[in-house]
Simulated scan of single mutants.
Amino acid sequence: MRTFDFSPLYRATVGFDRVADLMDRVLAADVAQPSYPPYNIEKLGDDAYRISIAVAGFGSDELSVDVRDGALIVAGRKAEEAGERSYLHRGIATRAFERRFALADHMRVTGASHEDGMLNIDLVREVPEALKPRRIEIAGGRTVEATPVAHANA
């Protein structure tokens, strides 16, 4: 696997260390990414998103959704069954899992719902007013008269 050194970026930029850290994390990640449970990411509007995760076999009390350090962490832990069951075929995986999603700046989780074996997590991007684009008014063009400078030696 090829490795990249991002240290030259740190001395020429300010505030982009998170982008370089993200690139480091992506490039250093194992090629075999976990595929369980499967998920979709939908764009619902200009600033609205939804992550839908297939969690068949899990109850709402066996799932957790947390936001920590700029990451959305979804975990599922199946409770122990009281009685022993005998399966002829077991195709519904109920093993424990943890999925992490890196959140961009100003992303906020607005809610989560569990219905029909799907966990839906709604997100919205809320850009602060100070960071939104704004138009700067240009003052009218007044000409300024040049005034002669008096020399002290004259």
Rank of each mutant, 00 (worst) to 15 (best):
E42T: 07
L44Y: 05
L44D: 12
L44Q: 14
L44K: 13
G45L: 06
G45Y: 02
D46L: 05
D46S: 05
D47G: 02
D47P: 00
D47T: 08
A48G: 03
Y49W: 15
R50I: 00
R50V: 00
R50H: 00
I51Q: 04
S52F: 00
S52C: 02
I53A: 01
I53V: 15
I53G: 01
I53E: 03
A54D: 12
A54N: 04
A54L: 11
A54K: 08
V55D: 02
F58V: 06
F58G: 02
G59K: 09
G59W: 05
G59F: 04
S60D: 09
S60F: 03
S60W: 03
S60E: 12
S60N: 10
D61E: 15
E62F: 12
E62L: 10
V65C: 11
V65P: 06
V65I: 11
D66T: 12
D66H: 07
V67C: 13
R68E: 13
R68F: 08
D69M: 06
D69H: 09
D69Y: 04
G70P: 07
G70K: 10
A71T: 11
A71G: 03
A71P: 02
L72C: 09
L72Q: 08
L72S: 07
I73E: 09
I73R: 12
V74Y: 14
V74D: 11
V74K: 15
G76Y: 11
G76A: 12
E80I: 07
E81D: 11
A82M: 15
G83H: 04
E84K: 14
R85C: 03
R85D: 06
R85G: 03
R85H: 14
S86A: 05
Y87V: 12
L88R: 13
L88G: 12
H89M: 05
R90Y: 00
R90M: 08
G91N: 09
G91F: 06
G91H: 01
I92E: 05
I92F: 02
A93L: 11
R95F: 01
F97Q: 01
E98R: 15
E98L: 10
E98G: 07
E98W: 02
R99C: 05
R99W: 02
R99K: 13
R99Q: 11
R100K: 15
F101G: 07
A102M: 08
A102C: 05
L103W: 10
D105N: 10
D105V: 04
D105I: 01
D105G: 06
D105W: 00
H106C: 11
H106Q: 11
R108P: 00
R108A: 04
V109F: 02
V109K: 13
V109P: 07
V109W: 02
T110Y: 03
T110F: 01
T110V: 11
T110D: 08
G111W: 06
G111R: 05
A112I: 03
A112G: 10
S113N: 07
S113V: 02
H114C: 04
H114K: 03
E115S: 06
E115K: 08
D116E: 14
D116A: 15
D116V: 03
D116R: 13
D116Y: 04
G117D: 08
G117R: 10
I121N: 02
I121T: 06
L123R: 01
R125N: 14
R125G: 00
E126L: 14
